[in-house]
Design a protein around this nucleic acid. Structure first.
Lengths: 344, 344
DNA sequence: CTGTTAGCGCCTTCAG
DNA sequence: CTGAAGGCGCTAACAG
């Protein structure tokens, strides 16, 4: 392997203590000695061994990103990749390494969270794609190792979260629909064990009631964020409600599925049915017609999560919640209720 | 922190050596002692410190995945995520950790590759998204640390690669088009510094010549795999060749851009212009019309890369090339030349 | 079968 | 300002 601190010390004619001092920016080192050491470091191409350092410092400068079901999540795909990028960039900028873990791999599934953290020796953990009823969830919040949850609003002294305001996001979507004159608005939600689903449902409900429209649980369908669920969802809602004129989907992918289904029935969007999605994935602007949706700033969520975690690590900050604002992006899948129906 | 091997030893009334022995599956341990130790390990919730182990073993059981420009690659997105999943799953199954690095972050860019590997102490490296003219490329191949390149066909004793057969992929695409009667076939390629671009060009050229069609460099446009390049590409090619009836794109995203451009001109696909893409991203089957394309098994590429690297690490295998077969997926964007033109 | 003894490469008091 | 000494938690000969 490469040269060690010992080699540098010998070559520079000083003790390893001194080398360590200059490497760690200690001030009490004779300028001459310092430059001497630095020169040797340079010419030997010395790289401190981070493993050895970690052992004595009891810090690895590494954070773990645990994703539930990374590969199986054909749905989360678009969402996760961007968050991952944000995390990765920020973590790196702040001088940490990022280790990836997916809990999908069968064996890992039951390993208690803490065992895994302690074994891997990460300084902190970021989690995404986790469900409220996941066994990890509780463990993470209670753990002594700092963590940041993405889209799971739970806080403790050692646990923060980053999310977008899902209540507001859903509210915006519904208000938009209400303003267009829609009264019978369906909601194809995500599965009930996702925190975001609960929040979006709340927003849906609040916006409706605020508009003087009674909330009807029958208008809510629970899917799993995937395309197919969108189709099944609208189909079911349309069967129950003949006057359904708009549907709000908890993911763009489901919205896409819904639209495809409608189109297969020769029902036009938005003339016959207005559609609002959630996420604003790349695909949303590529579809025909282009999807009206609620945008989440995924990359920023990742960045923010990384920052928050590292602040907890270095500034000893306590856990807290960070809520980013969503944004309604009006495109082509929503229109006034009742208009243009004659053309069909 | 948690208990150490010392605590276990004391509690079990043996030396730490013995504890170490049972933990590492040594056979020469009295069954009674073994169970005793195991019991203590259990009740103390002892987790071996991997950092300490790494220090003495000189192996971290960690591999690095370096991605050039992870976040900036709006294009690679679809491709990379799947490969990443494959890598992650396989690496984990084989008992390693995966550390993510993106070279985009400005500062990192010029750090010599080896410095970074040595500093991070990874046992091996996987690379993707790297260009032939990237300064890293050469370093990686020469490095003593084992590595596997994805889609860059370079081999050395310590460096393998995994790719799909791009020559064959392009050949299949062109043969398909030729069989449909097309003679003037354009090619919107990726940038020239991507290994895959060179190979696909070769396949394009070979298939053409085999069909008795002269290769004309003017029919090849070089883009950057992104959607916009597709539009620009077809536009330029159509201007040069009035009888252009088919275009082969080096990425689905570019194909999409091209199709959108054609549609904006009221030119129908495939009646007026047949289109073949490359990658078979999720989007390909969602488009209208659905895209005919060359599928790459991205997840499998990732798995294979991970496996190959770890075999080099553990079995001391030498570098080698692994070429996976692509597959032509015929959908709706290709049709017989000249047919249906009357309908337009 | 088991304990003793050396380190792995680095940081950190504590004396000069 | 600098060096000597001890130790982080674990593995690996080498003796019993």
């Amino acid at each position: 392997m490469g040269p060690t601190i010992k080699d540098v010390a010998k070559e520079a004619g000083v003790s390893i203590t001194t080398v360590s001092r200059v490497l760690n920016q200690y001030s009490d080192v004779n300028p001459k000695t310092r430059t001497k050491v630095l020169k040797v470091v340079e010419q030997l191409g010395y790289q401190p061994n981070s493993v050895a350092r970690s052992l004595v410092m009891k810090r690895t400068q590494t954070v773990g990103l645990v994703v539930s079901d990374l590969s199986r999540s054909r749905n989360g795909h678009h969402f996760m990749f961007d968050v991952l990028c944000g995390i990765n960039d920020r973590v790196q900028e702040l001088g940490y390494d990022l280790v990836l873990f997916s809990t999908s791999t069968t064996a890992q599934k039951k390993t208690p969270y803490m065992d895994f953290v302690r074994q891997r020796r990460v300084d902190g953990v970021l989690m995404m794609g986790i469900r409220l009823d996941d066994p990890y969830t509780h463990e993470v919040v209670e753990a002594s190792v700092p963590s940041v949850l993405i889209d799971v609003p739970l806080v403790s002294d050692t646990c923060s979260y980053v999310t977008t305001d899902n209540v507001a996001g859903a509210t915006m979507a519904i208000q938009h629909l209400v303003e267009l004159g829609h009264r019978r608005i369906g909601f194809v939600n995500g599965h009930a064990q996702a925190a975001v689903s609960k929040e979006r449902l709340q927003g849906y409900r609040m916006a409706l009631e605020e508009a003087g429209i009674a909330y009807d649980p029958e208008l809510v369908y629970y899917g799993n964020f995937e395309q197919q669920d969108g189709a099944t969802g609208v189909a079911e809602l349309m069967e129950k409600f003949e006057d359904l004129s708009a549907v709000f989907f908890a993911s763009d992918l489901m919205a896409l599925g819904g639209i495809k289904y409608l189109q297969s029935l020769q029902l036009r969007v938005p003339e016959r049915m207005s559609i609002v999605g959630y996420d604003d994935i790349e695909l949303a602007a590529m579809m025909q017609p282009m999807l009206t949706t609620v945008r989440q700033t995924r990359y920023e969520m990742g960045q923010s999560a990384a920052e928050t975690l590292i602040r907890m690590l270095e500034q000893n900050e306590k856990g807290r919640g960070i809520v980013l604002p969503p944004e309604l992006v009006v495109r082509e899948t929503t229109s006034k209720h009742g208009v243009n129906l004659s053309h069909i």
